[in-house]
Amino acid sequence: MKREKLKNLIDIKDLSVKEIDDLIKVANDIITHKDKYSKKCEGKILATLFFEPSTRTRLSFESAMLRLGGRVLGFSDANCSSTTKGETLGDTIETVSGYADIIAMRHPKEGAPAVASKRASIPIINAGDGGHNHPTQTLTDLLTISREKGRLDNLTIGLCGDLKFGRTIHSIIGAMSRYKNIKFILISPEELKLPDYTITEVLEKNNIEYIETNDLEKYMSELDILYMTRVQKERFFNEADYLRLKDYYILNKKKLEKAKKDLCIMHPLPRVSEISTDVDDDPRAKYFEQAHNGVYIRMALILKLLEVK
């Protein structure tokens, strides 16, 4: 059954391939004609409700709304909200629905944005829920791949690092699996391998070719995209496991010797030690462009959800 219009963005699967293509088109237009969009959201308010700390995502949402001429309110820590007084998420959301026109929320609990969308009378954007979903990061990644490679199909994509808890990894696999001739090289230590259900329910179900390895350099020469991720301390219950795994992969100039000349190196940031700073001036390093693209795709998304033409 076809959905009438997009009300919220909770999961990247909420968007059809055509809707993603349209958002990328608008984002590209914003990049070329920034002035055209500078007053599109005048009089509109974005609430950024961050129950878990984040710098990049929150600032990119705020920057997106400010660049559209709108205004922003919110909090960046659950300790600054009524959650500390025992208020439920549902009550917080219902209240804020009267203060703003659209909400971007991050929450440590998985599924929190889905709960919020049931209580809100305004659009909800999931800005990350635990290790579950982070759809605007995926949109940012898709915009970056599309701009750097000129296509979203016929790509060999290396995903490296924490494939178990990395929400950006799960989302990008789901999104890219809908495009033709995609091959994944899944590079991780044994303990951080992609969950079995993602392999059976996404990769195998869609007949997507994949290889699992723990060797970062083995398939380097085949890659069109190398997507590095951070081993996230906050996802571990046991600090000893985190310390053992955090420096498992470190990408440096030497490891890139066999890589293609047009390889696109991506990272959702923040990085800790998984990409050596000597890679930063390599023209194939695109992670800062990727972070900048996040603002433009979020601008496109806000326009779509607020139905601003």
Binding site: L89, E110, E201
Partner: peptide, 21 residues
């Protein structure tokens, strides 16, 4: 059973499961 799930903290929330396979 997921300690990171919103159902572990949010009050008055139905426990809902969907048949996916």
């Amino acid at each position: 059973n997921n300690p990171r799930c919103i159902t572990s903290t949010e009050r008055n929330l139905d426990q809902i499961f969907n048949l996916t396979d």
